[in-house]
C-alpha cells in the first residue's frame, strides 16, 4: 500500500509561534513549470501589527543579552542549519535552483551566520570612539540598537538574502519583522523552524509571507518601528517608503544590490546600519 503524501502546511512565524494569517487568505507558489508547490499565507496588516507588538516587547531584553550570548545564539542558528542542510537544498531545488547553486547558497548562508556571530562582541569597538573635546570631559561614542526594525527581504536568494539582512540586524540587539521573498517564500518559513530551535528568544525574529505592494505601506508607516530595511530597486516602492517613514523619522536603509553571494554582501557596516550612536559626556574634574 502506498503512503499518502504528507505535505507541510506553511504558516507564518510570530513570537515563536506558527499561526496562520488572521486574514485567512493565501496565495499560490508555483515552480517554473507552473506546478503548485504550496499555499502560502497572504499576511495582512494586522499580522504585521501583531508581530510588531511582540517584537517591541522582546527588544529590550534581547538588547541587554550579553554580546557573548548573542554570538553563541547566532552560532547555534548556523549549527541547526548545518544539520538540516539537505532539506534546505532540496527546497531550493524545488523552486528551480540548480544543484550546485542550491548547495552553494545553503553553505554560504551558514557561513554568513557564523561570520556575524563572530562580530557580535567586536563591532562595538570598531564603531566606538573617544572624542577630543575642549572641556573637562571624557567624551565617548558607542553604538546602540535602534529598536524594532522592519525588513523587506530580497526577492532573489530567498535564504541567503534573508540571512544576510537579518543576521546583522539581530546581532546588533534589534528585533525585527521580516517580509520574506515574495517570489520564493517557502524557505523562509523553514528557516523560521531553525530559528525556533536555536535559542533565539521568541519574538526577536518574526517572518511574514505575502505581497510587498500590500504590506510595504504598513512596514514603512508603523509608529512603533524604528528603522526599515528595503531590499530591491523598485523606484515607486522606495519613494513610498521614504515618504511614509518621515512620520516618526524611521531610519531608512535601501539595499539595491542584486547579488548576495559576493564578498561585499557581508561586512560589519551592515550591523552599523541599524545602530544609533550614543555620545556620553563624563566630567573628569569638578
Amino acid at each position: 500500500m502506498s503512503r499518502i503524501d504528507v505535505l507541510k502546511t506553511y504558516k507564518i512565524f510570530i513570537g515563536g509561534k506558527f499561526p496562520r494569517t488572521e486574514s485567512g487568505r493565501f496565495f499560490h507558489v508555483k515552480n517554473k513549470k507552473g506546478d503548485l508547490l504550496a499555499n502560502m499565507c497572504l499576511s495582512s496588516r494586522k499580522d504585521f501589527r501583531n508581530a510588531v507588538v511582540v517584537a517591541r516587547n522582546l527588544q529590550k531584553s534581547w538588547e541587554n543579552t550579553t554580546a557573548l550570548n548573542k554570538g553563541q545564539i547566532l552560532y547555534r542558528i548556523a549549527e541547526m542549519l548545518e544539520g538540516r542542510k539537505s532539506q534546505f537544498i532540496s527546497e531550493l531545488l524545488l523552486t528551480g535552483s540548480s544543484k550546485s547553486l542550491a548547495k552553494k547558497e545553503v553553505e554560504q548562508s551558514i557561513d554568513r551566520l557564523i561570520y556575524y556571530a563572530g562580530w557580535s562582541d567586536k563591532f562595538q569597538q570598531i564603531f566606538s570612539s573617544v572624542n577630543p573635546v575642549a572641556s573637562n570631559h571624557f567624551n565617548f561614542s558607542s553604538p546602540q540598537a535602534v529598536g524594532v526594525v522592519s525588513v523587506i527581504a530580497p526577492n532573489k536568494f530567498p535564504l541567503l538574502g534573508l540571512i544576510s539582512v537579518v543576521a546583522p540586524v539581530i546581532v546588533g540587539g534589534n528585533s525585527c519583522v521580516v517580509l520574506s521573498s515574495e517570489e520564493n517564500p517557502m524557505i523562509s518559513i523553514s528557516f523560521a523552524e531553525v530559528l525556533n530551535t536555536s535559542d533565539v528568544p521568541h519574538g526577536v525574529v518574526n517572518i511574514l509571507t505575502g505581497k510587498r505592494e500590500e504590506l510595504i505601506p504598513h512596514f514603512a508607516s508603523h509608529m512603533d518601528v524604528n528603522s526599515i530595511i528595503y531590499c530591491g530597486d523598485n523606484k515607486e516602492e522606495i519613494k513610498s517608503i521614504e515618504q511614509l517613514s518621515v512620520e516618526n523619522l524611521k531610519r531608512v536603509k535601501i539595499y539595491k544590490r542584486k547579488k548576495w553571494d559576493d564578498k561585499q554582501s557581508q561586512s560589519p557596516y551592515f550591523i552599523e546600519k541599524c545602530q544609533e550612536i550614543k555620545t556620553t559626556w563624563h566630567p573628569t574634574q569638578v
Binding site: V52, H218, S221, H222, M223, D224, L244, E247
Partner: peptide
Amino acid sequence: KSGFYQSLDY
C-alpha cells in the same frame, strides 16, 4: 485618525 499604527512612545 492618522491611518498609521501607533507607538506608546507618543
